[in-house]
Design a protein around this nucleic acid. Structure first.
Lengths: 195, 195, 195, 195
DNA sequence: GATGAATGAGTGTTCATTCAT
DNA sequence: CATGAATGAACACTCATTCAT
């Protein structure tokens, strides 16, 4: 039962992600999603309170996926800069695949959802990265900073640069150059030596 | 003729900005906008091809406003850091007032509009700031950087931090602290002295 | 299920026929039809793709009705002239009742629908009448003619004379006289004896 | 003045005919017509009471054109069958060029206009043909018939066969065959010799 | 006569959501 | 749990018509 139920929940969620990726939220109807998930329209409402309720669920799903990948790749690494690069790299990868959906997630539609919901979703990511930052401070790899604020800001920045890249196709800069530019921009700030 | 026409265009645009600020784009109907602008619904379509066409028009309007304020305040200033602070300050002010609308502008709804449209709107801002950065490099106020890329990224970053602040009400940090944190984060990166 | 669904389809169709008969297609709104059929507006679209899709459906419905009546009355009759008169008579009767709607059907709005659709609708009527004509030829009741072309042309002619009669109220000629005139016009042509 | 005014009336009328021929009445807007005629929208209403008022004006225009052509070609001819063939031929030609518009004229949209309007428009054509028929009776070229009724019916029939031909592209029959079939169908009826 | 900006009523259609089965 | 037929509110957009200039 639980398995079958979960399977349906997942199927609906994945269908939603796929269709919204193609057509955007506005042009995606519950009917579309239900059809793709091979369930009746009514079934959608057994798993989601409303169409809007999809957004946090999608965000959670994709963020968990991203965090898992980052953790996997940085597992065992001690060097902060390696980890930072992995974060940039994976964020760019995920953004490439799900840009339409991600824009909904950390973009405008945040409005209308309780901030708590969003905090709850991002909180594991933020906390993990705060930890990473703290360790780097302790190891003297980076300067003293407000860990909490920088965790949020940096994650946000990386996501945004990725988004812009894939929206704008940033004429002139290649993907790898952009990653490098971003990486070094952050590195300079975090390893500042006042003259 | 032109004046009266422009007056109507402006009235509709301002009404749209106000109402969308309150209710969001989706929940704002053309009827709402027309009512507030004291024109007939049909008149809306004399000035805007469609509801969607509002977004770039709003973006242009607000960005011009922001740029004007920034230029005014930084007029005559030579110190890059003063100018940077003004940019941060004014961006935060504008964001505070128009957060709902701005999210539409530099947020997700970018999709679906030709990138050229957006580039055209932001281009004056980008170019002005590229100039500011170039001068700062020449004055040795900041390090050598890719001016074009950094102009875009920095403007984007400032806008995003401002947005997040007003969406999240960033528990724990005050407005001024956030501005300072952001300012110094940027300053550190731009004045990096490798050890 | 099927019954209930069919019942609703029929109810909507009949309501549409009635209202369009009164007000014409343009002035008939889906709302009107739905109200008369006692269903929600949205329900209309479960059974018809669009307002336009009503026309072929109505045509099919009325033509089936007409053909049924003609077949019933001519059932067992062998004399071609009797059958021809029945066709004229029933066409006039149906036209009298549904003139507004029929005009949409075999009149101008034919444009915009695939000819195949119309052929499919009329085809049973044409084929049946081709048969009648063929038998009449074999019985030497009428002269040798191109059965296919004459079937279409004659049905068309009868419908048109009927239409004109009820539109124009043909001053001076009574209903019965018009039928007779038409009947004899056709009879003369089909029984031609060259001098 | 009168000339200039007439020129504008004609320009609007011709523009209307052309556009309606392409797009149909429903999809043709006054704005379209005005644009094509190079006049302001308001000017349309100086020459036509309403959009609907176009229809009789168009009908009159095209029918006068048709009648003129028929009269020109049959001028001096004495043989009824020659004249009948000319009528068929010219009707087919005109229908070919203006089928979309003609359908509006002698088709369904007749409804809603006073029958007197239509009678007035067709009356010159009917009367001329009644005359032709009467002469043919006197010359013993055709049998005794109700001239008034047959004039209307025959003109109507010819128009309808032409319409159908160009709508349906009457598979299998060529244009010339259809004309011949129609011609002989009428001829047989009008030269009937009872056996 | 001519203009064309302004009007605002009118409508087809979509779609999130419900609920009887 | 699952269905999918039914709902009906909501809305962008069109366009014939008017009228001040």
């Amino acid at each position: 039962m639980v398995n079958s139920a979960n399977r349906k929940y997942d199927k609906i969620l994945q269908s939603a992600i796929e269709i919204i990726s193609e057509k955007g939220l506005e042009k995606t109807s519950i009917s579309d999603i239900a059809k793709k998930a091979n369930v009746a329209q009514g079934t959608f409402y057994l798993y989601f309170r409303s169409k809007h309720a999809l957004i946090p669920a999608i965000a959670e799903n994709l963020l968990q996926l991203l965090l898992k990948k980052i953790k996997n790749r940085s597992n065992g690494k001690e060097d902060f800069w390696e980890i930072l690069y992995i974060i940039i790299d994976e964020t760019f990868e995920t953004t490439k695949e799900y840009k339409e959906v991600l824009v909904l997630c950390y973009g405008g539609l945040a409005f209308g959802y309780s901030m708590e919901t969003w905090e709850a979703i991002y909180s594991p990511y933020y906390q993990w990265f705060e930890n990473v930052l703290s360790k780097a401070i302790n190891n003297n790899q980076i300067v003293q900073i407000n860990v909490e604020w920088h965790a949020k800001m940096m994650i946000n920045l990386i996501e945004n640069v990725a988004e812009r890249l894939y929206i704008a196709k940033d004429h002139g800069n290649t993907l790898e150059e952009t990653k490098q530019e971003l990486f070094h921009f952050l590195k300079r700030s975090l390893t500042h030596n006042p003259s």
